[in-house]
Write a protein that binds this DNA or RNA. Structure first.
Lengths: 328, 328
DNA sequence: CTGTTAGCGCATTCAA
DNA sequence: TTGAATGCGCTAACAG
């Protein structure tokens, strides 16, 4: 920086003003000289030093429970794009569903003076999160954290489940099995399950059952298939991972996809069209969710201290062969 | 830090020594007092300031061409895990296959004083990369960058292609179509294509053709299917994206997966087993590749300035229904 | 409009 | 073994 200043025959302060947003305070002549000096020397301001002084690092942290989950990736992509558009960079921390690592990463992010945090984990370590939240804005994605008051962006789960169940009923299915990953305290999974129960309770023609993925999935699925019910059977998979697991299990059971049994899945993964007659999906607007998460953060960073907000996006039904039902 | 120092009745310098690796220079008594003070105050050293002073930020940068490519994600996961194990953090920059963004991100990473860089992009902007490479170690993943001398870790492409073609021939296929994403200067794609040609040239029983994904994929595939050849037909998809596109196209053509035509694909994605009779795969050891990339970097950071190294990993064949061929 | 000064939080001389 | 002093690269008062 000193080099640039000397090259342009000005003080470091002027260079600093040129770099920052205070260019209005400079005469055109000096601004031009500084610009040239910067170009000649290939100077790049050191963000570390800027951050150290201003307290603004232009860094956003994101805590992700599982980086191999396509949903998380898609949201992350949305966040990253939004970040970039506003001159922020994203530091992603993958916890691999490990509470220990969540804690370490939290400390780490703080030590890098991030300005805001986006959280897509179970958020155990309430205390650590709370503390961080006092220092910086925080927005939850997909999963609520109990007793943590903060902005939240995710899916309108009750609505999504209603669309799913209504669609299945409409297609003539009567016996619905919901397949979810283990709840494990994950708010979105719990919401989807309770919405499912509510929908079933409301629709007298339907019977509903819930199971979780895991080593007994195939066996449980088999039981479901073998148990006589009120009519045609269908699966409702609560997310992409559950859809993957359930489809695997159906194949193990030599099911003819999807003639004996219907299937609708939350999330829309790129391979859904390829399996059997194609898997009907409820697509989440993941990129929008990510972008909104960042924009929430940005508003707070700009000083908005209004009440906590919750943004619920709507799922979009994409019909494929797996729910042709009676209209086969 | 001053708080801690006062709390422990020592100077900042001692606290600094405690934090750093100079604990040997402290008496047990002071070390203990400092440790307690840190615990009481919940003090966390500021990495920004440390980086500013020492030049060591403990930050590694990674440039990724397409964050939605499962291969990239898997490698990134490996890198991130290795980073964490060695006390480094990872800043990921997704270029969305955009040269402009690659350049911006490069400048950005430098401004954050990263200590090393992992590159999984086309690496246009040779100059920018060169320059950065003079300042810090650099390792290429999957894709070489012309005229850039640096460590590189990726797949043994000739070997992988040989395994694929040998397997197809062994299964009785005689007419092989290789489907690749547009080459676009990507070294790994080009290597796979030329290895394919070499394999075909070597095996007189086989006929080989190459096409690229894109809007005409379905039409081209149709032509291939309709053209009489030396025997049973099969597809060799050069990566996961190509496999997705090709399978889509096969479905559009109402192909019976995979009775009329075989398929083997590089990369092993979690949905391969679900499509048709299951897609035979050549799995890349992605996590290992990522971890190795980081370890390469680490060696250089530790001072190793030996000659440039190239690490080629082997692909592993995973047989599924799509290459049952004669043994159906 | 511009330069001078004083730190941001820390690591490293140099003395003691 | 410890402390005081200096500066990493930059920004933000303040003064001109």
């Amino acid at each position: 920086m000193l080099d640039v200043a000397e090259h342009a025959k000005v003080s470091k302060a002027s260079v600093s003003r040129f770099i920052g947003d205070d260019r209005a305070l400079l005469s055109d002549a000096t601004a031009l000289r500084i610009e040239q000096a910067i170009a000649e020397l290939g100077y790049r301001p050191n963000q570390m030093a800027r951050g150290l002084k201003r307290g603004r690092t232009r860094l956003i942290g994101m805590l992700v429970a599982d980086i191999r989950n396509p949903y998380s990736i898609a949201v992350m992509h949305g966040v990253e794009t939004a970040c970039r558009q506003h001159g922020y960079s994203l530091v992603v921390c993958n916890t691999d569903r490990d509470d220990e690592q969540e804690c370490q990463h939290l400390a780490l992010l703080r030590s890098y003076n991030i300005e805001g945090l986006i959280v897509n984990t179970l958020g155990h370590h309430r205390d650590a999160l709370q503390e961080l939240h006092r220092e910086m804005p925080l927005v939850l994605v997909d999963r609520k954290v109990e007793h943590l008051e903060s902005d939240m962006v995710g899916l309108d789960n009750p609505q999504a489940v209603e669309i799913a169940i209504a669609h299945l009923e409409d297609r003539g299915y009567r016996d619905v099995l919901m397949v979810s990953e283990p709840y494990d305290g994950t708010s979105s999974r719990i919401e989807r399950a309770s919405s499912f129960k509510a929908q079933i309770a409301q629709r007298s023609a339907l019977r509903g059952t819930l199971i979780e993925t895991g080593s007994e999935l195939t066996a449980n699925l088999n039981t479901f298939l073998d148990t006589p019910g009120p009519g045609p059977k269908a699966l409702f998979c609560a997310n992409g991972i559950a859809a993957l697991a359930a489809t695997h299990a159906l194949r193990e059971l030599k099911c003819n996809l999807f003639e004996e049994i219907g299937l609708i899945a939350l999330d829309d993964l790129d391979w859904y069209p390829l399996v059997g007659s194609g898997i009907t999906a409820l697509a989440q607007p993941t990129v929008e969710i990510g972008a909104s998460a960042f924009e929430c953060l940005l508003k707070r960073l700009r000083g908005d201290d209004g009440p906590v907000r919750t943004l619920d996006f709507s799922a979009r039904l994409i019909e494929r062969g797996s729910t042709l039902g009676n209209f086969r």
